[in-house]
Nucleic acid binder design. Structure first.
Lengths: 107, 107
DNA sequence: TCAATAAGTCAAAAAAATATGACTACCCAA
DNA sequence: TTGGGTAGTCATATTTTTTTGACTTATTGA
């Protein structure tokens, strides 16, 4: 069971919670890769340069805790695990795109 | 003179730079307060509960470094300093609002 | 002239985030 | 039955961030 994180609206800043859920080592990259399809642990480790197990593990767990990704066991060929976008995760996509857009418009 | 920070598009994730420029202690709050008008150091210190000089100082300096805020000396009554949104900062506002919106739609 | 306010800086300490390397457990193929 | 892949965990470093408290410089009002 995954626990729901406090999004800290106590600070009087609603955006803060969202910002927190996407900050942390490798989280933006992981989320971005999730847009292209389900993720696998070892694949991520190879895809993200400089990545290490621990941090990738933390990134996946936290994205899952925030309800952006969901973990599934795939009972196929080589039995494995996949992380894919939840509905909440999907709903974040346009927002994420806006972040990219802003960044691109500002070099 | 303020130095331009590397927005790390090397990670292949454009959003990462923006995320970084808004994460860090008190940065979301400070940015949000800037939407309501110019900021002053000691006022922020009183407004943000739990704030300390050093962190507020770092938040302001980094927001300035990223070009979201600009620092001005105001030659009035009690001579003081104000931090206000730059054009770039203004252009971030709608993006920031989207973040808040997302957060509000997800409790 | 004294005390307060404004806007910080600096060094050191404490806390939080990341990285490293060893280890686990399971499955599968040769 | 040995070796490789998958998906991690765990304890311990190392690094980065944040906090604390002392100190500074200049202005201002009484």
């Amino acid at each position: 069971m995954t626990t729901q994180k406090d999004t800290d609206s106590a600070s009087g800043c609603p955006a803060e919670g969202l910002l927190k859920m996407l900050s942390g080592k490798f989280k933006p990259q992981v989320f971005r890769l999730a847009l292209d399809g389900p993720l696998r642990f070892n694949t991520l480790l190879r895809q993200i340069e400089g990545a290490n197990k621990q941090s990738v593990s933390v990134a996946l767990r936290e994205l899952e805790d925030f309800g952006l990704l969901e973990k599934k066991t795939i009972n196929l060929k080589p039995l494995h695990i996949e992380y894919s976008l939840t509905e909440k995760g999907e709903s974040l996509v346009p927002v994420f795109r806006q972040l990219e857009l802003f960044q691109n418009n500002n070099q």
